[in-house]
Computed example of a mutant assay.
Amino acid sequence: MEQKIKVGITGQAGFIGSHLYNYLGTKENIELIDFERSYFEDKSKLSNFVSQCDTILHIAAMNRHEDQQVIYNTNVNLVNQLIEACQDTNSTPKIIFSSSSQEEKDNLYGKSKRDGREALEQWAKNNNSQVASLIIPNVFGPFGKPFYNSFIATFSHQIINGETPNIINDGEVNLIYINQLSEVFYKHIISNQDTPALKYTVPHTATKKVSEILNLLNHFNKEYVQEGKVPNVPINSFEINLFNTFTSFIPLQSYFPRKFTKHEDNRGAFVEIMRAGVSGQSSFSTTVPGITRGNHYHTRKIERFAVIQGKARIELRKINTDKVYSFDLDGKHPAYVDMPIWYTHNIKNIGDTELITLFWINEPYNPEDADTYFVEV
Rank of each mutant, 00 (worst) to 15 (best):
N349A: 02
G331D: 11
D170C: 03
R300H: 11
L108W: 15
V288H: 06
L120E: 00
T292W: 07
V202R: 11
S98F: 08
Y109N: 15
I71R: 06
I240S: 15
A124S: 02
P203H: 11
N349K: 02
I176F: 02
Q69I: 09
S18G: 15
I176V: 12
H65G: 13
E315T: 06
K27N: 05
D54I: 12
N73R: 04
N149L: 09
H19R: 04
Y109P: 09
N29W: 07
Q158R: 13
E118F: 15
E264C: 14
N236R: 14
S182P: 00
K27V: 08
F35K: 01
S279F: 13
A61G: 07
K4C: 11
E315P: 00
F151K: 07
K187D: 07
T164A: 15
R64K: 15
V307G: 03
S279A: 12
I213T: 10
V131T: 06
Y109K: 09
V70D: 11
I59S: 12
E84N: 12
D265V: 02
N77I: 03
K311Q: 12
V230Q: 08
S51E: 05
N48Y: 13
V79I: 03
Q180V: 08
N232H: 14
I341R: 02
D115S: 07
T92Q: 06
S44W: 12
V70N: 00
F49Q: 00
G290M: 07
D328Q: 13
V70A: 12
T245C: 05
R304I: 03
G8D: 00
H58T: 07
Y343K: 00
V271M: 06
